[in-house]
Computed example of a mutant assay.
Amino acid sequence: MVVLLPPSVDLRSAWLEAHAEWGPGHHEDGFGLLETDDIRTPDGFRAFVGRLIAAESTPGARGGTYRWIAEDGEILGGIALRHENARDVDVLGHIGFGLRPSARGRGIAASALMDMLSVAKAVGMNRVLLACFVDNLASVKTIQHCGGMLDGTVMTDSGEVGRYRIVL
């Protein structure tokens, strides 16, 4: 059974396994990973997890809720909710998610997104914005399956991004 778990240092090995499957870099959407995070050392990983946990109780521009998508002790991906007034929400959207390649195509992202929409509603949000590249058909279909309506597109240095709204 797929569940959303709060970040935990106890899941370090499983998290690093998921991270390794993506390949080098800091590109896993939903994990809240920054280039400055030192995830290779136990102390660095503890600081990374601490930052994610602290974001949940932080109001304003840095507030957010991070969850790891897990099944049978394996980390499959991550999903993040940027709270209403979070920085860069107009560009990144309120919710970002990503699955490791071996977990894709099973409906896991849609299930995680539906769960995170419930969290958004519980923290008082009445709508969310999601953004993804228009050629990322899996994410587009996931967002639309969960009620996302295209609000428009914008060109970025990395390509065309679709902006989707979901009313809660």
Rank of each mutant, 00 (worst) to 15 (best):
V128M: 09
S118P: 00
S118E: 14
D90R: 14
R67P: 04
H27T: 12
G98R: 07
D115V: 00
F31C: 07
G44N: 10
G93P: 08
A18T: 08
S111C: 11
H83W: 09
F97C: 11
T36W: 07
G44I: 05
G124D: 07
L81A: 06
N136M: 03
E17Y: 00
D37G: 10
D88T: 10
R106S: 10
C132Q: 00
A80V: 15
G96W: 05
K121S: 14
L129T: 04
G107K: 04
G25D: 10
A120K: 02
G148R: 00
K141H: 14
D37E: 09
L99F: 03
G93M: 05
K121P: 00
L137D: 12
R51K: 15
M125W: 05
N126C: 09
G60N: 10
W15Q: 11
I95S: 09
I79L: 06
G30T: 00
V119S: 02
D29N: 12
E21F: 04
M149D: 06
R106L: 13
I143N: 01
E28L: 06
A110Q: 13
G64Q: 06
F31S: 13
T142F: 03
G63A: 08
F31V: 08
A109N: 04
E28G: 12
R82S: 10
R87T: 11
K121T: 13
R127N: 12
T36H: 13
M116R: 00
I39N: 07
W15E: 01
G148M: 02
I143F: 01
V91M: 15
N85H: 15
E56W: 06
I108A: 03
S139N: 03
E35Y: 09
V91C: 13
L92N: 14
L150Y: 01
A18R: 07
T65I: 15
G63W: 02
N126E: 14
G73F: 01
F97H: 12
R82Y: 06
N136R: 04
A20L: 10
S139P: 04
D43V: 08
N136S: 04
I143S: 02
R40L: 14
R82G: 07
I53Q: 15
A18P: 01
M116Y: 03
V119W: 00
E21R: 09
G73W: 01
G64L: 07
L129P: 03
A109H: 02
L76W: 03
G96L: 07
G44D: 08
L113V: 00
G105T: 07
S57L: 12
N85C: 11
R82V: 00
A18K: 04
Q144R: 13
R127S: 14
R106A: 14
A131C: 15
G105F: 07
R127V: 00
K121D: 13
G148S: 05
M114G: 09
F45V: 03
T41R: 11
H27K: 10
K141L: 02
G32Q: 04
A54I: 01
Y66E: 05
N126G: 12
R106N: 10
I39M: 10
L117M: 03
M116V: 01
G63S: 08
F97N: 01
G32P: 06
L34G: 10
R62N: 14
T58H: 08
Q144T: 13
